[in-house]
């Protein structure tokens, strides 16, 4: 018995679904951001799995992962800056309270 590609892909799929669940049900804006990080990590796990099992000579997936990590860090910084700004104005980070813009 050896480690199979499928194990990693299934793990990534599970993490992705947990991230989606957190994304939709969270009321705390910071937690929504954390769920997005979970989603990106699921993608990374996918890429790394493919990179090791399908593409071990050129490991393009690892390079892709490094880019995803970079972008995720930038996205987190921007997201938290926006959350800080909205907290200063509204004194809350409850997603249900953000309803100034409604049709």
């Amino acid at each position: 018995m050896q480690l199979q590609l499928e194990y990693f892909l299934l793990l990534a799929a599970a993490l992705f679904c947990i991230g989606i669940y957190g994304l939709i049900t969270s009321r705390n804006a910071v937690r929504v951001l954390m769920s997005i990080e979970l989603l990106l990590n699921a993608v990374n796990l996918n890429l790394m799995g493919f990179s090791n099992f399908l593409d071990p000579d050129t490991i393009r997936g690892q390079v892709f992962t490094v880019f995803v990590i970079t972008v995720a860090a930038a996205e987190a910084a921007v997201g938290l800056a926006i959350i800080l700004a909205i907290y200063r104005n509204r004194e809350t980070i409850d997603m249900e309270q953000f309803n100034l813009l409604k049709w």
């Binding site: 804006a29 997005i36 996205e75 926006i82 909205i86 509204r90 953000f98 813009l101």
Partner: peptide, 9 residues
């Protein structure tokens, strides 16, 4: 702020 947060998420 709200627009930015919604757009970002």
């Amino acid at each position: 702020n709200e627009a930015a947060l919604k757009y970002l998420l």
